[in-house]
């Protein structure tokens, strides 16, 4: 299990570094302007981060829906749907830098909070509201007096932009620093709240706020690669549910929209009942190799 968790951290770190490989941008206080910015990255990664090589899919979606253009974002929706249909929320568990940051914060040894089940169940829907209202509806329908649309989620909520773009750019550039006002303080407050919550609650942004996670979650039950539980092997011991930090019970619902496919449950299952399957192939703990069904 320890080896598996270390491997996942290594993949998360490598993915974060790869998506933010323009390291000289942090020193110069500038952003990358090359052709790779035509493409979106799979995880939440602000395109105004000095290191970012690609575009943020949520920001890109809003810039197309912007009240001035009112274009349905076929490119981004299609791109994200391809990822969702292939691997579901695997991106959340393995490739998202902000997910890694929250996990590292959660590893700080403090007493941990358990969100009451009822509240947790309700709060999980908030991310779908964020996707529908803040990412799609408001940028599409709202237009300011000057005819300009706003990327509502990025502007008023997204702590990723504040952390990856806002802090390095605003604190590194005196002109931007002088322009920072109430909005910056609001977003900084949200970021600090998110950081504080992440120390006590496992990945609170991913569980309750992230619109990208909500989008991928829509495909979780129909993705090509998915989790499966063999009912003949499962003895309902509950070991998988206890190890799952996203509060999913994989023995009852292996394709839950909340599952980020970290794979901890597969490694924990004493009966080797859980596996990841895709098409004609499956990988489980019993063989560790890809085998034909």
């Amino acid at each position: 299990m320890k080896k598996h968790r270390l491997a996942r951290k290594a993949v998360q770190f490598a993915a974060g570094l790869l998506q933010n490989a323009n390291l000289k941008g942090f020193l110069a206080g500038t952003i990358y302007k090359g052709p790779l910015k035509h493409f979106c990255v799979p995880g939440m990664n602000c395109y105004s981060c000095p290191g970012a090589l690609g575009a943020c899919p949520i920001g890109a979606m809003q810039s197309l829906l912007d009240g001035r253009r009112r274009k349905f974002p076929f490119y981004v929706v299609g791109y994200l749907a391809v990822i969702g249909l292939l691997v579901g929320r695997f991106v959340c568990g393995w490739l998202c830098l902000f997910g890694l940051i929250q996990e590292l914060l959660y590893s700080i040894p403090t007493p941990k909070l358990t969100v009451p089940e009822k509240a947790d169940r309700v709060l999980r829907y908030l991310k779908y509201v964020m996707l529908a209202v803040m990412v799609f509806a408001l940028p599409f329908f709202f237009r300011s007096a000057m005819g300009v649309g706003d990327p509502f989620f990025c502007k008023y909520v997204c702590p990723v932009g504040t952390l990856e773009g806002g802090i390095p750019l605003v604190f590194g550039d005196p002109s931007l620093r002088s322009a920072a006002g109430i909005l910056f303080n609001w977003k900084l407050g949200l970021l600090l709240l998110c950081i504080a919550a992440s120390i006590f609650i496992y990945r609170p942004f991913c569980r309750y706020i992230c619109p990208l996670g909500a989008f991928y979650a829509l495909f979780q039950r129909i993705s090509l690669i998915k989790m499966t539980c063999d009912p003949e092997k499962c003895v309902h011991c509950g070991a998988c549910a206890r190890v799952c930090k996203m509060k999913v019970d994989p023995s009852k619902d292996p394709c839950s929209p909340e599952c980020i496919r970290c794979g901890d449950c597969i490694k924990t299952c004493p009966q080797k009942a859980l596996s990841v399957s895709g098409g004609r192939f499956s990988v489980s703990r019993s063989d560790e190799n890809t085998v034909k069904r």
Partner: peptide, 9 residues
Amino acid sequence: ICLECIGIG
């Protein structure tokens, strides 16, 4: 630089 994203507005 996306001014909205970084909190400038």
